[in-house]
């Protein structure tokens, strides 16, 4: 799941120039795409620099604290302040790392916004189609919410009807039941602090 979503985010930029100006939610997806493709096309600088740029774009487009809290579900209530703080930070790092790790693999895919519809009281779902040179197209929808600061942010991504946040919620819940919140935080820390590739002996 995380691989598919990372792939989609990388692709979000690719049909950017084809899109006319739009408002709010759709515009956010377009912007995310436009900025993403800019980084993808850059070949100068170190890989680490480009990943950092990509992370900054993602972190401005997604409501990470909101997603983190939703994904922890009912366990949020039983977590103390420090556990919550660690969890939100680690979850954010985990999502950003996962999605920025796939830089460098662009091979001509295009994305088009296919629609926009209201969802619930305050959300908008932006639907997109990703066309791939090899393989069938992939449909993805992006649930977007306007925050109190009036900015739009992504709160969920759905691929083939499967929600990223609901999938993670199930996975995390199983870990919390077995190892507690501290255990979940260790799992996220383990995923985000693996040593990177090295040139050192």
């Amino acid at each position: 799941m995380r691989r598919v979503v990372g792939f989609l985010i990388v692709l979000a930029g690719l049909a950017w120039p084809a899109l006319a100006s739009a408002q709010g939610a759709s515009q956010l997806i377009q912007q995310l795409g436009g900025q993403a493709i800019q980084v993808l096309q850059t070949t100068g600088g170190s890989l680490e620099q480009r990943e950092r740029q990509f992370r900054a774009i993602l972190s401005a487009s997604f409501d990470m604290p909101g997603i983190a809290r939703f994904v922890l579900g009912r366990h949020w209530q039983q977590a103390n302040d420090e556990q919550r703080q660690d969890y939100v930070q680690l979850f954010t790092e985990y999502v950003l790392q996962t999605y920025s790790a796939r830089l460098g693999g662009y091979s001509g895919e295009t994305l088009a916004v296919t629609g926009e519809r209201p969802a619930g009281q305050r959300d908008t779902v932006v639907t997109t189609r990703i066309n791939r040179p090899s393989g069938a197209p992939v449909d993805a929808s992006w649930r977007v919410r306007q925050g109190e600061d009036s900015r739009f942010r992504i709160i969920d991504v759905e691929v083939a009807g499967v929600s990223m946040t609901l999938t993670q919620r199930d996975e995390f819940s199983a870990v919390v039941q077995r190892y507690g919140i501290d255990g979940l935080n260790e799992v996220l820390r383990a995923r985000t602090t693996k040593a990177p590739a090295t040139a050192a002996r």
Binding site: R3, A101, R102, G104, G105, A195, A197, T198, A200, R201
Partner: peptide, 16 residues
């Protein structure tokens, strides 16, 4: 072992 380690990173991150 250094190349083995880096191969692990490529697969872990889906690079190449």
């Amino acid at each position: 072992r250094r190349a083995q380690f880096n191969m692990g990173v490529l697969y872990d991150q889906g690079k190449g």
